[in-house]
Write a protein that binds this DNA or RNA. Sequence first.
DNA 1: CAAGCGGTGTACCGTACGGTACGGTTCCCG
DNA 2: CGGGAACCGTACCGTACGGTACACCGCTTG
Lengths: 224, 224
Amino acid sequence: MDQVAPAAPPEFSARQNDVLEVALRLLVEGGDKALTTAGIARAANCSKESLYKWFGDRDGLLAAMITYQSSKVRAAAGPGARPGREAFRGLLVTFAEDLLTVLSGDVSLALNRLAIGEAGRTEARLGGLVLKAGRRPIEARARSLLEAGRAAGHLAFTDTGDAYHTLYGLIVRDLHVRLLLGDSPDPAERNVPARAATAIDQFLRLHGADEKNAKGPGGDTGPA
Amino acid sequence: MDQVAPAAPPEFSARQNDVLEVALRLLVEGGDKALTTAGIARAANCSKESLYKWFGDRDGLLAAMITYQSSKVRAAAGPGARPGREAFRGLLVTFAEDLLTVLSGDVSLALNRLAIGEAGRTEARLGGLVLKAGRRPIEARARSLLEAGRAAGHLAFTDTGDAYHTLYGLIVRDLHVRLLLGDSPDPAERNVPARAATAIDQFLRLHGADEKNAKGPGGDTGPA
DNA sequence: CAAGCGGTGTACCGTACGGTACGGTTCCCG
DNA sequence: CGGGAACCGTACCGTACGGTACACCGCTTG
């Protein structure tokens, strides 16, 4: 199923990167309706023929935009050594801040809107691409962070994926969907550091292993 | 007739409801690309002229679909009297199950995809309509539920909206966005009752007022 | 210098959609 | 019974988009 591009490195030339940048700008400014091949060619001073030569078709161009953007937002690496408790909490807060910042970004929102709008139709691969190129790296970073925290004795959980989803929910809540729908959240919700700190506090109250929580997190119901 | 809409009563005739039903089916089956006026007219055995007479233009039709669908999913009313602790927990679990069920529904996903895809363009009102007609009633139900729980001494929180957002995040996590992107969650995440129960357990560990949590929830950082 | 390659700009084609107009039919109401 | 309103089915129009073809240009390279 994923034999589409098994070993094709999605590396683009500088010229193509420029074109992708222009396309992203157009998408952010005008939505998917403004993202026409003619419009991109005009704004990027290139020919439509070059667009099709480079990216195949419109969907290939869209996919290239996603991979290009996600390559720019490569998540920072995980922790090297075993951090202390406060340092580990700081790592979690940093992750939360990064997550909120990325998800609130104009380009991220525009690309997610594009992929979501395209999903639901038969054979829409943009959604899967966003999932794979955009979200999986973030999840991988969080998972390694969580497991490092558990190994260092700061966290208690059984299923890493479950803990990650809980962390994600506490950080993001319904903010992402509301932003995708065009809502303008109140200023308190825009305060990324405060929101991140609160979310991590809550997460540590659920899965922290330091204080009295050591008895058992109780966060898992094993339905199988 | 049972609920008096503030400004414009979005009441449609039975025939128009049938048309909206067909349109929703087309949208669910084929995505927004399959939702053409000609297609709706053909599938609903009506004329395009009637569509425009009834709904104005395509956007009016889309808006009618949203209000029609949300009117069908009117959230159940809140609790009447002061429930006991276990009964209140049951109310929370029921709310969580309803929320997960609604958000995972085909029609809800399709309409959210439509509105999200349309958002980002200048003057896109569908997103705001989904927010208003679809999410606000759910939030209102949750808020009244939360405040009833606090009044009954089962919950401790200062800001209702904040508590609601935490509850929402614990219940929904990133499931909604993943579904919107076309992801197929693993079967464990499809187990609505188990997920709801876990989420409510976690929420009560953060905001429950019964046991040792009575000392202080600590869930609020007041930045201002 | 000449050949060739990659790229630009533009013109072009087919298609598909939103929206409108029109003839024919049904059904209600006076 | 007759008039008219609502509506269906379809044909039609303008537009705009994806995708292709082509002529021209500049730069590299032998």
